[in-house]
Write a protein that binds this DNA or RNA. Structure first.
Length: 423
RNA sequence: GGAGAGGUGGCAGAGUGGUCGAAUGCGCCUGACUCGAAAUCAGGUGUGCCGCAAGGUACCGGGGGUUCGAAUCCCUCCCUCUCCGCCA
């Protein structure tokens, strides 16, 4: 959510910024709803103040006295009026809130102009893309693949997109999770193991609700949502709280399975490990002082890049253009690994600065020593990292002539041996 | 899942229909005393929203209701604690 004051005071600035995201947004509707709400609010508050002073007077009058009875009948009318006004006020407030929630976050000035994913800027490229995976094939075509990654039985037991990971496949998943968590902790993120179901209030605060409920798995009869990312429980940890300024930046990491219904996805994107309904991911979260958030974004991206460098996977960093920025982000980098068999880039992390957009919705603040007046923090997050696609890149890039997969040196200690075998 | 108790300001804890945004204590801030500190004394000390301002208004777990008027009465939901049951 944007700052309503900013929208009122500088609508043109907001309009121009939103235009850079190439979204169709009815700012005038929001402005109108806001003005209508404020007008009603003033009327309603005036009526209340009349009522309050009358009530104070009545409190001092003898109960059955003529003056008391006169006031009483007079106030009955006012009370009825207030009830009616309050109804209108509530409706106006709801309309206003809904209109405000349709407004996207403003892109940062450093975000490049652009409408489509093709206009994202390649910020940097690392590693030897051309020379990667001399024996590469798409991972699902590796002989024996289905012995370690059993999609058919997963489909039987649960559904498409819920594979079993078996033997060395399972072992590699576990090794990656461990590697990510331990590296992230070394970078200063405190490890958290959060709930993987959240309630509606949490899903609303991070923006999954009300619009994207079709993308989450929902439980019956408790109406809990399986987390699409650890970002949801992690961000909500401090919902409606005021943090100690000295504790900023707060940095945390969490491993969770992630659940995404991905309704409407199809085609080559979903083959093999590229896109699953359930996958493992380690997420990084930062709650920071507003003045520090862009420096923290660079550091976050660097921390994630460090993981890919240690795994010796060629990757590139994209700086998302306005049109490909998410609804809630001010600035976002996507990290993509090179999958030599598919000859395509796979997104394994996006590192975003939400500025105060999420914090306003979730009411996460800090109290500056100077003013003593609570202010919204800035929130950032990034994957560090998503397991299956990293795994896919390792399978493809590190496939050797004998059909085994070489485990990156940094991972050997976690995996326990130097090669993964499909037989 | 069953039975009971309870949710009030940073914390503890009063308050069962009217002048209660709310006693009191602790904590915190300011001042006095002091070379300084402690102790003591005096004063102050919640948050949000609307408003150019003066000011107004809302908030006693959430929502709804009764009433001229609700922290206080009624309904409902949530949460916490104690005991019992079940259980990794």
């Amino acid at each position: 959510m944007l700052d309503p004051k900013l929208i009122r005071e500088a609508p043109d600035l907001v309009r121009a910024a939103i235009a850079r995201k190439h979204l169709k947004v009815d700012l005038d509707a929001a402005l109108g709803a806001d003005a209508a709400w404020r007008a009603l609010l003033q009327e309603a508050e005036h009526l209340r103040s009349v009522q309050k002073s009358a009530n104070a007077a009545m409190a001092t009058l003898p109960k059955g006295s003529p003056e008391f009875l006169a006031k009483l009948s007079e106030m009955k009318a006012v009370s009825a009026q207030i009830k009616e006004r309050d109804g209108a006020l509530k409706a106006a407030e709801e309309r206003c809130r809904e209109a405000m929630l349709t407004l996207p976050n403003l892109p940062h000035e450093s975000v490049p102009e652009g409408r489509t994913p093709e206009e994202n800027v390649v910020f940097s490229t690392h590693g030897d893309v051309a020379g990667a995976g001399p024996f590469a094939v798409a991972h699902w075509d590796i002989p024996g693949f289905s012995r370690l990654f059993d999609f058919e039985r997963g489909a039987k037991v649960t559904g498409a997109g819920f594979p079993f990971f078996i033997g060395d496949g399972a072992r590699l998943v576990r090794a990656l999770i461990n590697f990510f968590l331990e590296e992230d902790v070394k970078s200063g993120y405190a490890e958290v193991s959060p709930p993987i179901f959240v309630n509606a209030a949490s899903a609303t605060a991070t923006g999954q609700l009300p619009d994207k409920e079709g993308q989450m798995y929902e439980t019956t009869p408790d109406r809990l949502y399986a987390v699409p990312t650890a970002e949801v429980p992690l961000t909500n940890f401090f919902r409606d709280e005021i943090l100690d300024e000295a504790s900023l930046p707060v940095m945390r990491c969490a491993y969770t399975p992630c659940f995404r219904r991905e309704a409407g996805s199809y085609g080559k994107d979903v083959r093999g490990l590229n896109r699953l309904h359930q996958f493992d991911k380690v997420e990084l979260l930062k709650w920071v002082h507003p003045s520090a958030s862009y420096g923290e974004l660079d550091r976050l991206r660097n921390d994630v890049e460090g993981l890919l460098r240690k795994l010796e996977i060629p990757y590139r960093v994209l700086l998302m253009c306005g049109g490909d920025l998410g609804f809630a982000q001010s600035k976002k980098y996507d990290l993509e690994v090179w999958a030599a068999g598919q000859k395509r880039w796979l997104e394994v992390s996006s590192c975003s600065n939400f500025e105060a957009f999420q914090a306003r919705r979730a009411q996460i603040r800090f109290r500056p020593r100077e003013s003593g007046k609570a202010e919204l923090v800035h929130t950032l997050n990034g994957s560090g990292l998503a397991v299956p696609r990293v795994l896919a890149a390792i399978l493809e890039n590190n496939l050797e002539a004998d059909g085994r997969v070489r485990i990156p040196a940094a991972l050997v200690a976690h995996f326990g041996k130097s090669h993964l075998s499909f037989s």
